[in-house]
């Protein structure tokens, strides 16, 4: 018998179960794109019939990091840039959990960039939502890794001399097996994409454009947007890596020109997730390690049986 009975429960889930009564109202600024992420996530979790207690949501630091305060589930509000290493280890400890990680563009593409690359490469079965507002919001408007070249801020008074990084292309080359971009202003698409991302077996990365009306006033509100799956001009096969790479490149460049392209960019099916890979090579047990501690019949090996090498 499992010690974790919230997992795979068979009951009707209401969307309001994902609203914490302790903190039902988010403290984001009026008009902030982050509300869109929260709503889309609640909608997706409800549609998937997930129990709040079978989800672990690990967040970083920043406005986006507060997602775990406003979404009712097991939550871990970690440190700046480190949500992914916390999240992926939790998944290895108990692969039956639904593991989500979230943070901002500074969190995921800047300070946590190394973890992003490696978590994508390893293809952990989890979903990573990046709130991309092309700015540092919580620290009041500094230039971020995705801010356009020339972007002026208090810390870049002459304007950023750096080209913004390309999050979708980076994700693809790092090894993510599902890559999409959506926008807070497009709630239906956002929810659908999150449903797909959570269902996807492997590392799914959603670059979520979240307008910042307070600190990024000169940035576009990400309207109008184009859904590339709904537009004949952008006909490509999301399962073809080369075609995906080209579409991503075009999408990233277009955003700097003020044109907002969103949709699914890459989906690789049939690739083993990281824990499946480890199980395949016998370097991880088939049943969740976390269960062992609650299982009275589990046989615990001891070091005494390893002493032959020392005699």
């Amino acid at each position: 018998m499992s010690a974790f009975n919230a997992i795979d429960t068979d009951r009707e889930i209401e969307q309001e179960e994902f609203t914490p009564e302790i903190e039902p109202q988010a403290t984001w600024c009026p008009g902030c794109g982050d509300f869109g992420v929260l709503k889309a996530l609640k909608g997706a979790a409800t549609e998937l019939g997930l129990d709040p207690e079978e989800i672990l949501l690990v967040t970083g630091i920043g406005c986006s990091g507060k997602l775990s305060s406003y979404f009712e589930s097991y939550g871990f509000h970690s440190i700046h840039g480190r949500s992914l290493p916390v999240a992926r280890a939790a998944k290895l400890a108990n692969p039956e959990l639904t593991v989500l990680a979230a943070g901002g563009d500074g969190d995921g593409y800047g300070i946590g960039g190394n973890h992003f690359m490696h978590t994508a490469r390893e293809n952990h079965d989890m979903t990573y939502i990046v709130f991309n507002n092309e700015i540092f919001g919580l620290t009041k408007g500094q230039t971020s890794p995705t801010s356009p070249k020339g972007h002026k801020s208090k810390t870049q008074p002459q304007g950023s001399a750096k080209d913004p990084l390309r999050p979708l292309s980076m994700s693809l080359s790092a090894g993510a097996s599902y890559v999409a971009r959506t926008a807070a202003v497009n709630p239906n698409q956002a929810k659908e994409i999150l449903v797909e991302a959570i269902q996807h077996d492997g590392f799914s990365h959603v670059d979520f454009l979240t307008q910042c009306p307070t600190w990024n006033k000169d940035a576009k509100q990400y309207v109008p947007y184009i859904d590339i799956q709904q537009n004949d001009e952008y006909d490509f096969d999301v399962t073809e890596r080369r075609e995906a790479a080209e579409a991503m490149y075009e999408t990233e460049s277009a955003l700097w020109e003020g044109k907002v392209l969103t949709g699914r960019y890459y989906q690789e099916d049939g690739r083993r997730t990281y824990h499946e890979e480890k199980m395949q090579q016998d370097s991880m047990p088939e049943s969740p390690i976390a269960e062992q501690y609650f299982d009275d019949d589990h046989e615990w090996k001891r070091s005494y049986d390893l002493l032959d090498a020392h005699r």
């Binding site: 009975n5 919230a6 989800i55 939550g75």
Partner: peptide, 13 residues
């Protein structure tokens, strides 16, 4: 522990 019925909480730095 996450996954337990009745145990949800938030861990925060």
């Amino acid at each position: 522990i996450p996954g337990q019925r009745g145990g949800r909480f938030l861990a925060s730095g």
